[in-house]
Design a binder for these strands. Structure first.
Lengths: 137, 137
DNA sequence: ATACATGCAAACAATTTGCATATTA
DNA sequence: TAATATGCAAATTGTTTGCATGTAT
């Protein structure tokens, strides 16, 4: 997903397009990895785009509900990332820079066979560590 | 891991064995699934075992560091569970009751081959849904 | 006896709410 | 103009800290 797709999606759902909303989307599109609410606030401050905490949280929630952002916990903090809308896959996540690498392996077909009477609603498969660029740093 | 193994581990590391610590361990051993700090506090209140928030949090942290408890986020809240010390495996986790079922499938051998230059520190593979007992409820 | 654990109260951080004002469609 | 978004300030929640006292070793 990118910023313009996200805006389309918001429009379709009856939400309005505002400057702040675009700023947030642009940040995550350019970040191309997991970031915290704090990272976002700091970035907006640095680029002189005033925004209040409540607006940030309200929009992060909204984006998460609508499926624009996905979340995970990293280093004990909640992180957000622009959602991948294409085919199903998983991620290696760098603990240092938050960037991800797609992993095409998913064991769920096999796993489902061992969960006959269970109602499966979702799954998470993530690999954590340091990407090549963040090693020895 | 069970309560007595946990106590042994604490002793070995120089931590003292107190009634409150045992209460917390017993709770998680009997719960046999993921529980929140709030669940724990409520249980201790109900069984007339007074305990303060700070003691709970201090011990949850301690147990987590030492490896007695493992954590995950479920329904937006931090949950704790008595750690499994035996062979490597993953879990199906019931979103309703927090209980788990062991999954013996792990795709990491295969995944590692696709992450040649990455430094892998850990991974998480969890399946979420409703266990047989919690369906239609 | 000494070191560690606990409770209390207070501090703290992160997130959320109500309401008036501003903005988009 | 009608509905939604924002900012402000204040409330709320969850968690953490300092310090005096209590308890396990």
């Amino acid at each position: 997903m990118n910023t313009s797709e996200a805006i389309e999606l918001l429009k379709k759902k009856g939400y309005k397009t505002t400057g702040k909303r675009k700023d947030i989307l642009t940040y995550f599109e350019e970040a191309d990895g997991y970031r915290t609410a704090k990272d976002l606030i700091q970035h907006l401050e640095e680029t002189h785009k005033g925004i209040s905490f409540d607006t940030i949280y309200r929009n992060l929630h909204l984006y998460n509900e609508v499926g624009i952002l996905e979340t995970t916990e990293l280093n004990g903090e909640k992180h957000f990332r622009m959602n991948c809308t294409h085919h199903h896959h998983h991620h290696f996540i760098c603990k240092d820079c938050g960037k991800t690498k797609e992993i095409e392996i998913c064991p769920m077909d096999e796993v489902k066979q061992t969960l006959a009477n269970y109602e499966i609603e979702g799954h998470k498969f993530e690999i954590y560590g340091l990407c090549p660029g963040c090693q020895h740093a």
